[in-house]
């Protein structure tokens, strides 16, 4: 049910002050999901298996590297890279240990969704010049069972791209490519 993420994301983008619309797909080429202003966005949803999704690493850096480089996520990014005119990936990680980890370690001071979007677009503009990175806004929305508040935690990752095959280089994700 990745459609839930897509409709939700389009709405969150509107709340953040951007304008968006879905992109018409065709049989002949793979299109991105959304056009936000003039940027083409692909939305992905990552789901861990049940146990892993609730087991959080002991520190945020381990959690970030552990989850952001698992095959499932790297494959999802690889799939996004096949889309025509891709500028930015939005990755919903709510059902992963990272989704929980970011709440645990940064619940009161992660980037707001609107800030993450604005900064990500700046990085996209820089990245278009050299093509060395794939920019991803990683986000996790949840409702706190205690306070019943809806919250969105976001951060940005610049995934290094390998030039040979234009794939995400998951052996190399330096900490300075992660902006929380």
């Amino acid at each position: 049910m990745s459609f839930v993420s897509e409709f939700m994301c389009a709405s969150l983008v509107n709340y953040a002050g951007f304008n968006t619309s879905f992109v018409q797909s065709t049989n002949s080429s793979k299109k991105c999901d959304l056009l936000i202003d003039s940027y083409f966005i692909e939305i992905k949803t990552a789901i861990d298996d049940f146990r892993y999704g609730t087991k959080i690493d002991d520190d945020l850096i381990c959690e970030l590297h552990g989850t952001l480089t698992i095959d499932k996520i790297v494959n999802a990014l690889g799939d996004a890279l096949q889309k025509e005119n891709l500028d930015l990936v939005m990755l919903n990680v709510v059902s992963t240990s990272l989704g929980m980890g970011i709440v645990k370690y940064r619940k009161n001071n992660s980037l707001s969704f609107a800030d993450a979007m604005r900064r990500a677009i700046e990085y996209v503009n820089q990245s278009k010049k050299d093509g060395r990175y794939l920019i991803a806004v990683i986000f996790s929305c949840y409702i706190d069972d205690v306070s019943s508040e809806f919250k969105v935690n976001s951060f940005i990752v610049k995934y290094p791209l390998s030039h040979e095959n234009y794939q995400v280089d998951n052996d190399c994700l330096p900490s300075d490519c992660i902006y929380i």
Binding site: F50, R51, G53, T54, I56, V94, S95, T96, G99, M100, V103, K104, K107, Y142, I143, D144, D145, V146, S147
Partner: peptide, 16 residues
């Protein structure tokens, strides 16, 4: 497992 993670005393999150 319930899927609920106790982040701290004031924050419980269910990611499933």
């Amino acid at each position: 497992e319930s899927g609920t993670v106790e982040i701290d005393k004031s924050t419980h999150v269910n990611n499933k």
